[in-house]
Amino acid sequence: MRPATKNLTRHARSDGQLVSEAVAGDTVSWEELVRRFSVRLHRIAGTYGLDNASAADVVQTTWLRAFERLHMLRDPAAVGGWLVTITRRESVSVVRGRSRERLVDTYDSIDAPDDGRTPEDEIAALDQNAQVRAALQRLPQRDRKLLTMLMASRTPSYTAASAALNMPVGSIGPTRARSLAALRRELVHS
């Protein structure tokens, strides 16, 4: 049996090994980290409703932040979760920046009372909404369409949903219940 060597194939090296080697200045290990996680990070940024260019900017910023702070990572094996957290924070920052860019119609709305939500509440709500959107996208198309139609209105019409989806009105309620259960499962497993 041959002893383990530092020249393991790229895919055989753990995330922790890649981080340690990248911190030591190994550019090949850094590039492998980028290859290993970029698609996942781009997908996460997309769940915040960002277009491809904005999601790419978020991922680029994530890698910049990671490069600047990689040496401070206490558990190199946890790099995946750390990168996801950075991506989520950067995505929220972009989304919040866009909401500040909206023009105000009248001066009266500037003085509107605060609804009591803290910035942390806003971030938590944005993150939860992104997770629900991502879980909804993983459902079958028919379930996704039904739930979207019913959620889009304060007074959902089973008749309208029946006509749009070519489903019997009597099937809408049970299908809705199954779709919501599937959505809950997706949220638990994400």
Rank of each mutant, 00 (worst) to 15 (best):
E31F: 08
R185H: 02
P113E: 13
A134N: 12
L103M: 06
A12T: 09
V84R: 10
S157Q: 14
L70Q: 15
R154Q: 13
L8C: 05
S153T: 15
T159P: 04
A161M: 05
T106C: 04
V28I: 03
G116K: 11
T175M: 13
M149H: 14
M149A: 14
A124T: 14
A135H: 08
A22D: 07
W30A: 10
A112K: 08
T155A: 02
R184S: 12
V39N: 10
D105Q: 14
T5I: 01
P174C: 14
S93P: 00
M167I: 09
L64K: 08
R185P: 00
V92F: 00
R88D: 02
Y48I: 02
R2G: 02
L126R: 08
V79M: 11
A4L: 10
V79I: 15
A45R: 01
L126N: 06
A22Q: 06
Q17D: 14
Q141K: 08
T9C: 08
Y158K: 12
Q128C: 11
G173C: 13
R142E: 13
L147V: 12
I110Q: 07
P113W: 03
P168I: 03
A112N: 08
A163Y: 07
A24I: 04
S14M: 05
D121V: 02
S29F: 06
V59K: 03
D111L: 14
E32G: 05
A182M: 15
A77F: 01
T85Q: 14
D51M: 00
V169I: 11
R43K: 11
